[in-house]
Computed example of a mutant assay.
Amino acid sequence: MGKLSPMFEKTKLFTLEDHNKSASQRKPRNDKKKQIKIPVTDEQKLHIGRLSLLNGHKGEIDSYLASVFSQAIERPYIQYSKPIEYKDNSNYASTKVVKDVFDEITRLKVEWGLRSIRQAAHRILINELMG
């Protein structure tokens, strides 16, 4: 006699371990963003907020800074940005940038001989705000 339905066949049960294995084998998203926290003074943060409002970002610092970094790395002269004194004051402006922008900031960090992405992002941001 034939089988009734494949649904009634005795097969290996799908366990929680199997589920976790398949979840960890997924490819990472190619549009995943990387967070950067840049130390700023209260005055600089207020200035960034104003610029955000003036440039159509509705006062949202995160989206405005993402566009600032995207535009800044496109400039052919960005690598010649003047050195800026870096002081980590525990007051940050935060943004998330796409992988290409993050990779370019990383490249500039190495080229400038800086210790961290945060220092390179700070240098870019302050030069952009002053220019």
Results as ranks from 00 to 15, higher is better:
residue 116 S to D: 01
residue 117 I to G: 06
residue 111 E to S: 10
residue 88 D to V: 01
residue 118 R to E: 15
residue 99 K to M: 12
residue 91 N to F: 12
residue 90 S to W: 06
residue 84 I to H: 06
residue 112 W to P: 01
residue 106 T to H: 13
residue 116 S to W: 00
residue 88 D to I: 01
residue 116 S to I: 02
residue 87 K to H: 13
residue 87 K to Q: 13
residue 84 I to K: 12
residue 117 I to R: 09
residue 97 V to L: 04
residue 115 R to L: 14
residue 85 E to P: 07
residue 105 I to A: 10
residue 88 D to E: 13
residue 100 D to H: 11
residue 107 R to A: 10
residue 113 G to N: 05
residue 103 D to S: 12
residue 104 E to F: 07
residue 111 E to D: 12
residue 116 S to Q: 04
residue 115 R to Q: 15
residue 106 T to I: 05
residue 109 K to Y: 00
residue 102 F to E: 08
residue 114 L to N: 01
residue 108 L to I: 07
residue 90 S to G: 06
residue 108 L to N: 00
residue 88 D to A: 03
residue 110 V to M: 09
residue 97 V to H: 01
residue 98 V to E: 14
residue 95 T to A: 04
residue 117 I to P: 06
residue 93 A to G: 12
residue 103 D to C: 03
residue 100 D to S: 15
residue 116 S to H: 12
residue 95 T to N: 08
residue 119 Q to R: 11
residue 99 K to A: 14
residue 90 S to Q: 13
residue 117 I to T: 14
residue 87 K to T: 06
residue 104 E to R: 15
residue 104 E to Q: 14
residue 96 K to T: 14
residue 92 Y to N: 13
residue 109 K to L: 00
residue 110 V to W: 02
residue 114 L to W: 02
residue 90 S to C: 10
residue 108 L to P: 04
residue 86 Y to C: 08
residue 86 Y to P: 10
residue 118 R to P: 03
residue 90 S to F: 07
residue 112 W to V: 00
residue 110 V to P: 00
residue 94 S to P: 03
residue 99 K to T: 04
residue 117 I to M: 02
residue 101 V to G: 08
residue 90 S to N: 12
residue 102 F to S: 12
residue 90 S to A: 11
residue 98 V to W: 05
residue 93 A to N: 11
residue 84 I to G: 03
residue 106 T to G: 06
residue 96 K to S: 14
residue 113 G to K: 04
residue 100 D to N: 14
residue 99 K to D: 14
residue 90 S to P: 01
residue 98 V to Q: 13
residue 104 E to W: 00
residue 97 V to F: 01
residue 92 Y to D: 05
residue 95 T to E: 09
residue 112 W to H: 00
residue 111 E to H: 07
residue 96 K to D: 08
residue 86 Y to G: 13
residue 94 S to I: 15
residue 116 S to N: 08
residue 109 K to D: 00
residue 119 Q to M: 10
